[in-house]
Every structure is written in C-alpha cells, then in structure tokens.
Design a protein around this nucleic acid. Structure first.
Lengths: 222, 222
DNA sequence: TCCTCTTAGTGTAGTAGATACACTAACCTA
DNA sequence: TAGGTTAGTGTATCTACTACACTAAGAGGA
C-alpha cells in the first residue's frame, strides 16, 4: 500500500555544528558554499541524506569527511524545516552538534575542492540559511550540559591538566571560574584520575596530568 | 537553480505526545489507526506536513484537531527518521510534546470518524511505529523540566490548590513528595500568587486557591 | 453539640553543595 | 639567587535540600 499522499515530500539534510578547541579558543568548522543560494557564504557542514541512510549516520559521515575523525560525540539538536529556509524547494535539516578533541583533528581541506576552515565562535561570519540559529542553539545546549554532565571531557586529549580543563569550561561558559572551587568540583565527581606524569612547559611549576576514566561515555551528574 | 539531487526526499510528518491530567492520572492522547501498516493499533496523533506548512504549525494544527484546544504549550522533542520505520517508504517524523490543562479539554472524537482516546501513561497499549520511543523521550524530558522550570504550571487551570499542584508533580515524577518542602519550594520561586478564594470540597478544611503569575510563559528557574 | 474523620497548612534542625577568598610550591631564566 | 610565572591548596560562610509531626478547619453523623 502506497503512502496516501503525494504532497509533503521534502529534501532531507543534516547540518553539524562541529565544536573544537584550537589556539585556546572555542572554534567551529565551516564550509564555504560554492553554489547558489548563498554562494561564497560560510555554512555548516552537512549534506543530503541518502535514500536508505540513517539520519545520524549521515551526520557522522559528513563529520568524518570534514574532520578526518570518527567516533566522536554527536547529538541531535533539533530540526529546522521552515518552508522558506531554502529558496529552491522544501528542505528539512536535522541539526546535530559534535565535539572533537583538538589532538585528533586533521583538517581535510580541499578533498572535494571545498574550502573548509575553523572560526572562533565569537567572531563568526554571517552564515548561510538558518545556520546562525543552529549555532546559537548548539552553544546554549553545550553550555547547559557542562553543568550537569561530563560532556566537557569529550574535548580533552588523553592526558591533560586541570588548568586545561578549566579553560575549556571558561571558553564555553564565557566567564572566569575560581580555580580552587573548580578543582574541588572536578575531583569530587570522580570521573578523572591523576596520573603520575607531569607536563613541563615554560618557566614555572610543572602541572600534574590527568586522564578521563570512561572517555567514551558522557555521564549525567547528580 | 534546482536542488542538485533527485534522491534524499522523504515524506515529512509530525507526531505529538499530548499530555493531560484526567481522573488524577497522567494521560496521553492516542488515535487508533484505520489503515495499514499497524492497522487497528494505537498511535500518536500527527500527520503529513503540507507543502508550504511550517512543521510546528502542522503539529499545532493536528493537536487542535485532536483536542479542540489552541495555544497550549508545544515543544519540539526530536526527529525520528530511521529508514525502516515505515514499511511503505521513507518517512521522517518530527516529534513534539504538548501539555494541555485538563479544564480546557473537549475531546473531539469521531470528527473524521477517528477513534481517539486517553490512556494512562502507565498502562499504554503497544504503539505503532516507533511511537513508544517518542513517548518515553517525551516523558523523560517533561520530568527533567519539572526540576528547573515552571513547565508544570501549563497543566494547571486558572485557580488551583497547592495540593493539586503537588499531585501533578507526583504523577509526572512517579514518587511522593514531602508536603512542606514542596510548598516552600513552590512559593520561593514566586511564580504563583495566593488568591483570596478557597475551595470547599468534602468534609475537611477548605484549601486556599492560587493562580499562576505568567500563565503563558515557561520560565527557567535558577 | 460534640466527636470523628479528612484534608489543609505550618517550622526547625541538620546536611550537603556552592561560593568567596590568598597564600605557598615548583620550576625556569637572567 | 632573585624575579617571574603557573600549579596547587583550605577554610569559613551561605544557601538549598532533606527529614520529620503536629495543629487548623470544615463536614457529617451520633
């Protein structure tokens, strides 16, 4: 039995807000559009979902194509389907956000002749379509999750200092945190473990390195 | 310029998890399917999004058709688009949830010859498609929002007692709350106001009636 | 009318988590 | 070895949440 309507079909796409930390800043991966509409404009990575492709699998694939990394944290954000959001025809986009640890990044630029670049979250260019709104929703969600989950650890490399971790929180929340209270809180949740290594850089006391207990899980705290 | 692909099109639908309080229970609105697949099975209200219709507007319209109420709280939940979720063809459903104050409900049954009914959340029948999963996500979201927002007030009529309100919380969270602590917390957030009316019912002390300060806003607390 | 039943309404002490806040430790370099 | 820089630590206060038990007010029936 066929679906009882011929209307209501839409092009199904994904877009991914890819966060990473580079140069001590919270940055986003953007792609420059080569075709109209919004030709030349920066936009979020993403693409059309294949005939028999799972939506999340599509987002993960696009993410891998853009960054060269796999298995990173990816979460559905929300769906944008305003009838006028694409001037060509009805396009529905399921937005995701992803967190990529900086160490793992190898930017695959120009693989398909695409111009791809990282932009600081504060200082984004005007984005194509409703992608600016997607970024804003993603940032809000990420900041909210910092407070009650271990999501920030998704950004961390295998070994990191508590100061590294604190600056991740500070970049996302966009405010300074008290060092002692921060350390107490992090250690109290027992999700990271001290190692016996230290990092020496610069002419000051070396910093103890820590590692995440369950690097592939995001736990809800409290 | 046409969209540069002929693949990737999907039927776009909505489904709404409609919560209401009836007979001292948290209930959901379900519709019995008249056609295959899942013929005769209960399912969530919803339908195909029109050619030029906004997705949320479609959800609101379907909600109004099912319940006869308008202007109630409606929030996007998430999007389900598994390639096999509908055996006929690729159907993507944007799931919403809605909260309907019990007083305003007039169930429009049989308007289109559809069988529509309220089911207690505990004691739902097996649902069509992935609607069971939608219900579970909606209930989790609702319970989470109770803790940090004024969302519960969306269920309340114009005048209600604190005991009424407490039983809303208890039904959603599925556990008993301490009366004194609950009242302290509710009054501390200064979102409800005592009226000079009381409600007399039964042979016991009458209960003071309260009203919500901003009944159409859901505020994030703390 | 007064006794009983039922739901409404109230306060306090203890605990746990969050905040504010300033100094010492370790290393490097000049 | 003195100065500069980042790492690392503890305590007092405040605030929010928890646990907990009795009195108040009305209705109905004896």
């Amino acid at each position: 039995m066929p679906f009882p309507t011929e209307t209501g079909r839409a092009v199904l796409t994904t877009n991914i807000v890819v966060f990473s930390l580079r140069d001590e800043q919270l940055k986003l991966l953007l792609v420059r559009r080569r075709n109209p509409p919004f030709q030349g404009c920066w936009s979020l990575p993403g693409g059309v979902v294949g005939e028999d492709e799972d939506i999340e699998a599509n987002a993960m694939r696009k993410l891998e194509e853009g960054t060269g990394v796999s298995g990173v944290y990816l979460e559905q954000l929300c769906t944008f389907g305003d009838p006028g959001r694409d001037p060509r025809e009805r396009v529905v986009s399921v937005a995701y956000y992803a967190l990529v640890p900086s160490e793992r990044l190898r930017l695959r630029t120009d693989e398909h002749g695409e111009e791809v670049a990282w932009f600081a979250l504060r200082g984004l260019p005007e984005l194509a379509f409703d992608h600016g709104e997607m970024v804003s929703v993603a940032h809000q969600r990420l900041a909210a999750k910092l407070e009650y989950s271990t999501i920030a650890f998704q950004f961390m490399p295998e070994r990191f200092t508590l100061s590294d971790l604190q600056s991740v929180y500070e970049m996302i929340l966009n405010r300074d945190l008290d060092k002692r209270n921060f350390r107490k809180r992090m250690l109290a949740m027992e999700q990271i473990r001290q190692t016996d290594e230290v990092r020496r850089n610069g002419s000051h006391r070396p910093a103890r390195l820590y590692s995440v207990n369950n690097p592939h899980e995001v736990q809800i705290i409290k």
